[in-house]
Nucleic acid binder design. Structure first.
Lengths: 344, 344
DNA sequence: TTGAAAGCGTTACCAA
DNA sequence: TTGGTAACGCTTTCAA
């Protein structure tokens, strides 16, 4: 179907080895022969078979990405975008797998990555614990944890500091006088939800505000967000502020508040998370915690390449744990300066 | 670094060929030997090298995806998700490339896909014209155009019918009495923008409304959407309705209208596109054109697999062009039944 | 039931 | 400067 190097050699009337050297731009080939070989290759539309190259010891120039849940759109899209940005200019291809496709998806994906002899791996899921990671280490495949952390084995990780982001949001609200702050989270067993929660407690503790478990809501869908938040605001004493799990979830929250005739920010302050482009166009513009997802992914990919290129024989690699710091973007949904004065 | 089949054979004390047969579950191996081989493989954590297999004639079980622009988040995320959903259960890996990474990105990506001998290709970009497609056909790599179309060469394509979606939205507004409908689009040279526009003209024509070029706005960023739409509503005669390029863009539009104290839907009707989850939570809930992006991607992937499995030697393949029909989801932003009566 | 050998497409090593 | 040969890891004849 496709021409091989032998076809090219035959057409150019030289040996296969000379053809190989000519195609690879080596200098021990006469200009005239090189010319003939390149013409023949062009005529036959020859493209080297990467599998053969990989078998000879070259690498496949491919990295793998294991994503926790491909349906978490607004997170995964910039994540993958950052990875491509770093990988493509280096000539690396990216294979993406979905860890939540099936119960055995994580294992299947790891097996596939090893089969394909990828040069390295970015893991956004450690659902199956340290086992697969140890296997990777044994197989000599470098990897970096992407927005996940695990204590054993000690490995490289680059993560957004959700705890700190949540802390910043909560502190901001506490500073403005809020004491009953509703904390809306995603699924109970979802790592990003678990990462956020301690930041809320940190801030409460700092302001000597007792923790009320009734103010924490775990929601699996937008419809649940809407319903649970609405119910929470119908109870007394009413919360005076809400921290949304993310900016999308702020929308059903804002709807619930409209339905209850509660004004934002006069009656209730609202803070989002992730600072999507839409946040500034909401009514009122949404205060949100900005995380550099794309940058994080890019840097994780660059760290992975550093690791791939590391001469492990000569020097031991020291694992790194990079934490990306969030930034609170204050807009009107969390109150104005006037409000600040009033409640201070 | 990693065990080969010879290591396994040596440890199990059998030949390489027997080892291969045992590992591949062939039945001409004695149970006792098979057992020994599997144990040895387990002990050495043996994983077959896919490059060697591919070289022997097996396929790499990989498909490639060329995405037009990885930063178009809300479109690409469900697109890729649908592709994974179809590919992963079949044991296929997915390599994703970004066609807008560099001027040579399309060519580079095609070269890479051929080098890697992928089994098939999904193309969401035909930026470089028919040349690369002809090359693929010559190389015998099956491909399907994903939400793109090209006349020559004749090839398989699966696309969302943006023209029809835009027509439905415009007709809906015309039926409610609107005659000055602002049409906000994305970049002028962006195919999805070009696909939408004729639908607008179709509807105007059907209602005998003359086309006013001043009512079409091309915008590259959300900030531009906000600014251009605002300017358009400050001119007289004022439009009475807006069709947003997509739901995200509806947000800066709604903001511009709020700033001008124009009520939605009483003063201005607004229609979005893509029907994101957030549409129903906006204020007012946004009428939007729903497109089944994920389904389209899944079906495109399945069509690709059908093509990959096609016995081309025996029967000629007949190209198909599937058009995914949109659905208008009417919510309050385009007016109520009362309004309909009033303006009819 | 088992094993030896050939070959997939490529590159590297040596000789010529 | 060129070409023959071996080897990468695997599967598949074909013999034994």
């Amino acid at each position: 179907m496709v021409a091989t190097i032998r076809d090219v050699a035959r057409l150019a009337n030289v040996s296969v080895s000379t053809t190989s050297r000519a195609l690879n731009g080596r200098d021990d080939v006469s200009p005239e022969v090189r010319q003939r070989v390149l013409e023949a290759a062009g005529a036959l539309k020859y493209t080297a078979n990467l599998h053969a190259r990989a078998l000879k010891g070259a690498t496949a120039r491919t990295i793998g990405v294991l994503v926790a849940d491909t349906s978490a759109f607004s997170f995964n899209a910039p994540l993958l975008s950052g990875i491509y940005d770093a990988a493509t200019p280096r000539g690396y291809a990216v294979i993406v797998c979905n860890a939540s496709a099936s119960p055995t998806a994580v294992r299947d994906a790891h097996d596939m990555f090893v089969e394909k002899r990828v040069d390295g791996l970015l893991l956004n899921s450690v659902r199956d614990g340290p086992g697969p990671l140890l296997a990777l280490q044994a197989a000599g495949i470098p990897f970096v944890l992407l927005n996940r952390h695990i204590d054993e084995p000690e490995c490289d990780s680059i993560a957004l500091d959700y705890r700190r982001g949540t802390y910043l949001a909560a502190r901001h609200l506490l500073e403005r006088g809020h004491r009953r702050i509703l904390h809306q989270l995603g699924s109970r067993d979802h790592p990003p939800s678990q990462d956020r929660f301690p930041g809320y407690r940190d801030a409460l503790h700092e302001f000597d505000v007792p923790f009320d478990p009734g103010l924490v809501l775990f929601c699996d869908t937008m419809a649940e967000v809407h319903q649970h938040v609405r119910e929470a605001f119908e109870r007394t004493p009413r919360p005076t502020a809400v921290m949304a799990y993310n900016d999308e979830n702020a929308l059903p929250i804002l709807l619930a508040l409209r339905e209850l005739d509660l004004r934002v920010p006069e009656d209730v302050a609202v803070v989002g998370h992730n600072n999507l482009a839409i946040a500034q166009y909401l009514d009122p513009p949404l205060t949100s915690v900005a995380h550099a997802v794309r940058d994080m992914a890019r840097q994780a990919t660059e760290l992975l390449f550093e690791k791939i290129a590391w001469p492990a024989q000569q020097e031991a690699w020291t694992p790194r744990n990079v934490s990306y710091q969030p930034r609170l973007v204050v807009r009107q949904s969390s109150g104005t300066a006037a409000l600040l004065t009033r409640s201070a």
